[in-house]
Amino acid sequence: MSNISPFHIAIPVHNLKECRTFYREVLHCEEGRSSDHWVDFNFFGHQLVIHYKEKSEASLHTNPVDGKSVPVPHYGVVLPWDTFQDFAKNLANKGVSFIIEPYIRFEGQVGEQATMFFLDPAGNALEFKAFKDIQQLFAK
């Protein structure tokens, strides 16, 4: 692990069993502690907790970014460039339906990055991204 401290995020899911399988089998997150209402996962070195919550009828909100409709809220991680490419192929092979297909955002500009968006089985939006030059992560 790097010198960056891991973060913790807790998200609501209305289908604990289905989401538990998704994070473990599709995203390959190692499962940690759990109860009948929540499950901890090692989410790429960070702690993700899925908590049961009754289903909401709220619709997905988006904001425009680089000509795409980015879902808000969303969460995810920044992966190494080569890992991102392999991960995207693996997700596609597993039949994950993308909200925004993997592509290069801000191509040729400051902050150029590979990115993709998809939903978990509870409708939570996830973004995974990568930078060829990680120094561009917070570049203006």
Rank of each mutant, 00 (worst) to 15 (best):
M1P: 14
S2T: 15
S5M: 05
P6R: 13
F7W: 06
H8Y: 14
H8A: 08
A10D: 01
A10K: 06
A10T: 07
A10V: 03
I11N: 00
I11L: 04
I11Y: 01
P12F: 00
P12T: 10
V13C: 11
N15A: 00
N15E: 05
N15H: 04
R20A: 02
Y23E: 03
Y23A: 05
R24W: 09
R24P: 03
E25S: 10
L27M: 14
L27A: 12
L27T: 11
H28S: 15
H28F: 13
E30T: 15
E30H: 15
E31Q: 15
G32V: 13
G32F: 15
G32A: 15
G32K: 14
R33L: 14
R33F: 13
R33Y: 12
S35V: 09
W38P: 07
D40Q: 07
D40L: 08
D40G: 00
F41C: 00
N42G: 02
F43T: 05
F44R: 05
G45I: 11
Q47G: 12
Y52V: 01
K55R: 10
S56Y: 08
L60I: 12
H61Q: 09
N63M: 13
D66E: 09
G67L: 00
K68M: 02
V72T: 06
V72H: 01
P73R: 05
P73M: 06
H74I: 08
Y75K: 04
V77T: 14
V78S: 06
L79E: 08
L79W: 03
P80S: 05
P80T: 08
W81C: 04
D82A: 07
T83D: 03
T83L: 00
F84K: 00
F87W: 07
A88T: 04
A88G: 07
K89T: 09
K89E: 01
N90A: 13
N90F: 10
G95T: 08
S97Y: 03
F98W: 01
I99L: 09
R105P: 02
F106G: 03
G108F: 02
G108E: 04
Q109H: 06
Q109D: 08
V110Y: 02
V110E: 01
E112P: 02
Q113M: 03
T115A: 12
M116P: 06
M116E: 04
F117V: 08
F117K: 04
F117C: 08
F118N: 07
L119N: 12
L119K: 14
L119M: 13
D120G: 08
D120C: 08
A122V: 12
A122F: 12
G123H: 11
N124W: 05
A125Y: 06
A125W: 03
L126G: 01
L126D: 01
L126V: 03
L126Q: 07
K129S: 04
K129Q: 10
K129F: 10
A130K: 06
F131R: 09
F131W: 05
K132W: 06
K132N: 11
I134V: 13
Q135R: 14
Q135C: 11
Q135T: 15
Q136F: 09
F138N: 14
A139S: 15
